[in-house]
Design a protein around this nucleic acid. Structure first.
Lengths: 116, 116
DNA sequence: CGTATAGTTAGCTGTATGGCTAAGCATGAG
DNA sequence: CTCATGCTTAGCCATACAGCTAACTATACG
Protein backbone atom coordinates (compact mmCIF):
# COMPACT_ATOMS: atom_id res chain seq x y z
CA UNK A 1 0.00 0.00 0.00
CA UNK A 2 2.83 2.32 0.88
CA UNK A 3 3.39 4.44 -2.19
CA UNK A 4 7.17 4.72 -2.31
CA UNK A 5 8.20 8.34 -2.41
CA UNK A 6 10.16 9.10 -5.53
CA UNK A 7 13.82 8.48 -4.75
CA UNK A 8 16.12 9.59 -7.54
CA UNK A 9 18.80 7.12 -6.50
CA UNK A 10 16.39 4.21 -6.70
CA UNK A 11 14.99 5.39 -10.01
CA UNK A 12 18.35 5.98 -11.65
CA UNK A 13 19.61 2.68 -10.37
CA UNK A 14 16.58 0.91 -11.77
CA UNK A 15 17.16 2.58 -15.13
CA UNK A 16 20.86 1.71 -15.18
CA UNK A 17 20.24 -1.86 -16.30
CA UNK A 18 19.59 -2.63 -19.99
CA UNK A 19 17.32 -5.54 -19.13
CA UNK A 20 15.17 -3.34 -16.95
CA UNK A 21 15.02 -0.61 -19.59
CA UNK A 22 13.97 -3.26 -22.08
CA UNK A 23 11.19 -4.37 -19.77
CA UNK A 24 10.10 -0.78 -19.27
CA UNK A 25 10.04 -0.23 -23.02
CA UNK A 26 7.85 -3.29 -23.40
CA UNK A 27 5.58 -2.18 -20.58
CA UNK A 28 5.28 1.27 -22.10
CA UNK A 29 3.25 -0.39 -24.84
CA UNK A 30 0.87 -1.96 -22.38
CA UNK A 31 0.63 -4.29 -19.39
CA UNK A 32 2.21 -7.72 -19.56
CA UNK A 33 2.53 -10.83 -17.42
CA UNK A 34 5.89 -11.86 -15.99
CA UNK A 35 6.52 -14.68 -18.46
CA UNK A 36 5.97 -12.41 -21.43
CA UNK A 37 8.47 -9.94 -20.02
CA UNK A 38 10.94 -12.72 -19.39
CA UNK A 39 10.80 -14.22 -22.87
CA UNK A 40 12.88 -11.70 -24.86
CA UNK A 41 15.50 -11.40 -22.13
CA UNK A 42 16.64 -15.00 -22.20
CA UNK A 43 16.87 -14.86 -18.42
CA UNK A 44 15.42 -17.23 -15.89
CA UNK A 45 12.24 -16.38 -14.09
CA UNK A 46 13.75 -15.72 -10.65
CA UNK A 47 16.19 -13.27 -12.20
CA UNK A 48 13.40 -11.52 -14.07
CA UNK A 49 11.38 -11.35 -10.89
CA UNK A 50 14.19 -9.57 -9.13
CA UNK A 51 14.44 -7.04 -11.93
CA UNK A 52 10.72 -6.46 -11.61
CA UNK A 53 11.11 -6.00 -7.87
CA UNK A 54 13.75 -3.33 -8.47
CA UNK A 55 11.47 -1.54 -10.91
CA UNK A 56 8.58 -1.77 -8.50
CA UNK A 57 10.62 -0.50 -5.55
CA UNK A 58 11.66 2.45 -7.66
CA UNK A 59 7.98 3.14 -8.23
CA UNK A 60 8.37 2.71 -11.98
CA UNK A 61 5.91 -0.14 -12.30
CA UNK A 62 3.09 -1.70 -10.39
CA UNK A 63 2.19 -5.36 -10.37
CA UNK A 64 -0.89 -7.25 -9.35
CA UNK A 65 -1.78 -10.89 -9.34
CA UNK A 66 -4.89 -12.07 -11.09
CA UNK A 67 -5.36 -15.78 -10.70
CA UNK A 68 -1.95 -17.33 -11.22
CA UNK A 69 -0.81 -14.56 -13.56
CA UNK A 70 0.99 -11.47 -12.28
CA UNK A 71 0.33 -8.53 -14.51
CA UNK A 72 2.80 -5.64 -14.65
CA UNK A 73 1.94 -2.06 -15.54
CA UNK A 74 4.14 0.95 -16.07
CA UNK A 75 3.67 4.06 -13.94
CA UNK A 76 4.57 6.88 -16.32
CA UNK A 77 4.46 9.64 -13.70
CA UNK A 78 7.34 7.90 -11.98
CA UNK A 79 9.71 9.36 -14.53
CA UNK A 80 8.70 12.90 -13.59
CA UNK A 81 11.39 13.29 -10.90
CA UNK A 82 14.02 12.42 -13.49
CA UNK A 83 12.67 15.06 -15.85
CA UNK A 84 12.57 17.54 -12.99
CA UNK A 85 16.17 16.80 -12.04
CA UNK A 86 17.26 17.12 -15.65
CA UNK A 87 15.50 20.45 -15.98
CA UNK A 88 17.07 21.70 -12.77
CA UNK A 89 20.54 20.68 -13.95
CA UNK A 90 19.98 22.40 -17.26
CA UNK A 91 18.72 25.48 -15.47
CA UNK A 92 21.82 25.75 -13.30
CA UNK A 93 23.93 25.22 -16.36
CA UNK A 94 22.15 27.99 -18.24
CA UNK A 95 22.60 30.37 -15.32
CA UNK A 96 26.26 29.51 -15.45
CA UNK A 97 26.32 30.27 -19.16
CA UNK A 98 24.65 33.62 -18.44
CA UNK A 99 27.30 34.33 -15.83
CA UNK A 100 29.91 33.44 -18.39
CA UNK A 101 28.33 35.89 -20.80
CA UNK A 102 28.44 38.52 -18.08
CA UNK A 103 32.05 37.66 -17.48
CA UNK A 104 32.89 38.06 -21.14
CA UNK A 105 30.99 41.35 -21.22
CA UNK A 106 32.96 42.56 -18.22
CA UNK A 107 36.18 41.54 -19.86
CA UNK A 108 35.24 43.43 -23.00
CA UNK A 109 34.30 46.53 -21.04
CA UNK A 110 37.56 46.41 -19.10
CA UNK A 111 39.49 45.96 -22.27
CA UNK A 112 37.62 48.88 -23.78
CA UNK A 113 38.57 50.99 -20.78
CA UNK A 114 42.19 49.82 -20.79
CA UNK A 115 42.58 50.48 -24.46
CA UNK A 116 40.37 53.40 -25.49
CA UNK B 1 41.14 11.39 -26.49
CA UNK B 2 38.65 8.60 -26.85
CA UNK B 3 35.29 10.27 -26.58
CA UNK B 4 33.24 7.63 -24.80
CA UNK B 5 30.10 6.93 -26.75
CA UNK B 6 27.06 7.72 -24.71
CA UNK B 7 26.09 4.57 -22.86
CA UNK B 8 22.79 4.93 -21.07
CA UNK B 9 23.69 2.24 -18.56
CA UNK B 10 26.89 4.03 -17.58
CA UNK B 11 25.16 7.38 -17.38
CA UNK B 12 22.21 6.17 -15.33
CA UNK B 13 24.53 4.27 -13.05
CA UNK B 14 26.66 7.36 -12.56
CA UNK B 15 23.55 9.36 -11.70
CA UNK B 16 22.28 6.75 -9.25
CA UNK B 17 24.58 7.90 -6.46
CA UNK B 18 23.64 10.95 -4.35
CA UNK B 19 27.28 11.89 -3.85
CA UNK B 20 27.86 11.93 -7.58
CA UNK B 21 24.71 13.96 -8.20
CA UNK B 22 25.93 16.40 -5.56
CA UNK B 23 29.25 16.72 -7.34
CA UNK B 24 27.50 17.23 -10.66
CA UNK B 25 25.30 19.91 -9.15
CA UNK B 26 28.38 21.66 -7.86
CA UNK B 27 30.12 21.33 -11.20
CA UNK B 28 27.09 22.68 -13.00
CA UNK B 29 27.95 26.00 -11.42
CA UNK B 30 31.48 25.94 -12.75
CA UNK B 31 34.72 23.97 -12.77
CA UNK B 32 36.27 22.90 -9.48
CA UNK B 33 39.38 21.09 -8.26
CA UNK B 34 39.10 17.67 -6.64
CA UNK B 35 39.60 18.91 -3.08
CA UNK B 36 36.81 21.43 -3.39
CA UNK B 37 34.47 18.71 -4.65
CA UNK B 38 35.51 16.45 -1.81
CA UNK B 39 34.95 18.97 0.98
CA UNK B 40 31.13 18.94 1.25
CA UNK B 41 30.93 15.16 0.92
CA UNK B 42 32.86 14.32 4.05
CA UNK B 43 34.48 11.49 2.10
CA UNK B 44 38.17 10.69 1.76
CA UNK B 45 40.03 11.71 -1.35
CA UNK B 46 40.49 8.23 -2.86
CA UNK B 47 36.77 7.64 -2.56
CA UNK B 48 36.00 10.97 -4.18
CA UNK B 49 38.44 10.20 -6.96
CA UNK B 50 36.63 6.99 -7.73
CA UNK B 51 33.33 8.82 -7.92
CA UNK B 52 34.94 11.26 -10.32
CA UNK B 53 36.26 8.37 -12.38
CA UNK B 54 32.74 6.96 -12.65
CA UNK B 55 31.41 10.34 -13.77
CA UNK B 56 34.21 10.69 -16.28
CA UNK B 57 33.73 7.18 -17.69
CA UNK B 58 30.07 8.00 -18.16
CA UNK B 59 31.18 11.04 -20.13
CA UNK B 60 29.44 13.40 -17.73
CA UNK B 61 32.55 15.30 -16.76
CA UNK B 62 36.01 15.93 -18.02
CA UNK B 63 39.08 16.47 -15.91
CA UNK B 64 42.48 17.92 -16.62
CA UNK B 65 45.51 18.44 -14.52
CA UNK B 66 47.05 21.88 -14.30
CA UNK B 67 50.14 21.82 -12.14
CA UNK B 68 49.28 19.70 -9.14
CA UNK B 69 45.61 20.62 -9.27
CA UNK B 70 43.10 18.54 -11.22
CA UNK B 71 40.25 20.63 -12.44
CA UNK B 72 36.88 19.06 -13.19
CA UNK B 73 34.34 20.38 -15.68
CA UNK B 74 30.84 19.25 -16.44
CA UNK B 75 29.91 18.17 -19.97
CA UNK B 76 26.30 19.27 -20.28
CA UNK B 77 25.67 17.57 -23.63
CA UNK B 78 26.30 14.28 -21.87
CA UNK B 79 22.81 14.43 -20.43
CA UNK B 80 21.27 14.57 -23.89
CA UNK B 81 20.93 10.77 -24.24
CA UNK B 82 18.97 10.71 -21.01
CA UNK B 83 16.62 13.37 -22.29
CA UNK B 84 16.30 11.50 -25.56
CA UNK B 85 15.47 8.27 -23.78
CA UNK B 86 12.92 10.03 -21.60
CA UNK B 87 11.28 11.61 -24.63
CA UNK B 88 11.18 8.26 -26.40
CA UNK B 89 9.58 6.60 -23.38
CA UNK B 90 7.03 9.36 -23.14
CA UNK B 91 6.32 9.06 -26.85
CA UNK B 92 5.65 5.34 -26.65
CA UNK B 93 3.46 5.96 -23.66
CA UNK B 94 1.45 8.59 -25.49
CA UNK B 95 0.96 6.28 -28.44
CA UNK B 96 -0.30 3.74 -25.96
CA UNK B 97 -2.71 6.31 -24.56
CA UNK B 98 -3.92 7.03 -28.08
CA UNK B 99 -4.44 3.33 -28.63
CA UNK B 100 -6.36 3.23 -25.38
CA UNK B 101 -8.53 6.05 -26.65
CA UNK B 102 -9.12 4.10 -29.83
CA UNK B 103 -9.98 1.08 -27.75
CA UNK B 104 -12.51 3.05 -25.75
CA UNK B 105 -13.97 4.45 -28.95
CA UNK B 106 -14.25 0.96 -30.38
CA UNK B 107 -15.95 -0.22 -27.23
CA UNK B 108 -18.42 2.63 -27.41
CA UNK B 109 -19.19 1.96 -31.04
CA UNK B 110 -19.69 -1.76 -30.38
CA UNK B 111 -21.91 -0.94 -27.46
CA UNK B 112 -23.85 1.46 -29.67
CA UNK B 113 -24.27 -1.32 -32.22
CA UNK B 114 -25.20 -3.92 -29.62
CA UNK B 115 -27.77 -1.67 -28.05
CA UNK B 116 -29.27 0.63 -30.67
C1' DC C 1 -8.45 -35.87 -8.92
C1' DG C 2 -4.34 -35.17 -11.48
C1' DT C 3 -1.34 -32.58 -14.18
C1' DA C 4 0.49 -28.75 -16.60
C1' DT C 5 1.27 -23.73 -16.01
C1' DA C 6 2.84 -19.47 -13.70
C1' DG C 7 5.01 -17.69 -10.05
C1' DT C 8 7.59 -17.85 -5.79
C1' DT C 9 11.18 -18.79 -2.32
C1' DA C 10 15.64 -20.21 -0.70
C1' DG C 11 20.12 -20.26 -1.27
C1' DC C 12 24.57 -20.42 -3.95
C1' DT C 13 28.27 -17.91 -6.83
C1' DG C 14 31.26 -14.50 -8.82
C1' DT C 15 31.80 -9.69 -9.63
C1' DA C 16 31.08 -4.78 -8.75
C1' DT C 17 30.51 -0.97 -5.58
C1' DG C 18 31.56 2.19 -2.00
C1' DG C 19 34.07 3.01 1.79
C1' DC C 20 38.61 3.04 4.21
C1' DT C 21 44.04 3.36 5.38
C1' DA C 22 48.70 3.69 4.17
C1' DA C 23 52.13 4.92 1.45
C1' DG C 24 53.89 7.20 -2.85
C1' DC C 25 54.73 11.01 -6.26
C1' DA C 26 54.77 15.62 -8.12
C1' DT C 27 54.64 20.52 -7.80
C1' DG C 28 54.53 25.24 -5.82
C1' DA C 29 56.12 28.19 -1.94
C1' DG C 30 59.75 29.64 0.93
C1' DC D 1 66.90 22.36 -0.97
C1' DT D 2 62.86 21.41 1.96
C1' DC D 3 58.48 20.91 2.95
C1' DA D 4 53.56 21.31 2.71
C1' DT D 5 49.89 20.54 -0.53
C1' DG D 6 47.18 17.88 -3.74
C1' DC D 7 46.52 14.21 -5.87
C1' DT D 8 47.50 9.08 -6.89
C1' DT D 9 48.09 4.08 -6.28
C1' DA D 10 47.65 -0.20 -3.91
C1' DG D 11 45.14 -2.93 -1.37
C1' DC D 12 41.75 -4.29 2.24
C1' DC D 13 36.77 -4.95 3.74
C1' DA D 14 31.74 -5.34 3.80
C1' DT D 15 27.78 -5.13 1.23
C1' DA D 16 24.99 -5.25 -2.90
C1' DC D 17 23.99 -7.06 -7.53
C1' DA D 18 22.97 -10.14 -11.30
C1' DG D 19 22.84 -14.50 -12.52
C1' DC D 20 21.84 -19.43 -11.57
C1' DT D 21 19.48 -24.17 -9.75
C1' DA D 22 16.34 -26.62 -7.05
C1' DA D 23 12.42 -27.14 -4.74
C1' DC D 24 7.81 -25.31 -3.46
C1' DT D 25 2.93 -23.11 -3.96
C1' DA D 26 -1.03 -22.09 -6.22
C1' DT D 27 -4.30 -21.91 -9.90
C1' DA D 28 -6.34 -23.46 -14.13
C1' DC D 29 -7.84 -27.31 -17.18
C1' DG D 30 -9.31 -31.93 -18.56
Amino acid sequence: MAKHEPDLSLIFHALSDPTRRMMLARLAQGPAPVTELAAPTGLRLPTVLRHLAVLEEAGLISTAKDGRVRSCVIIPEALAPVQTWLDAQRHIWEVRLDRFDDYVMTLMKERANDDP
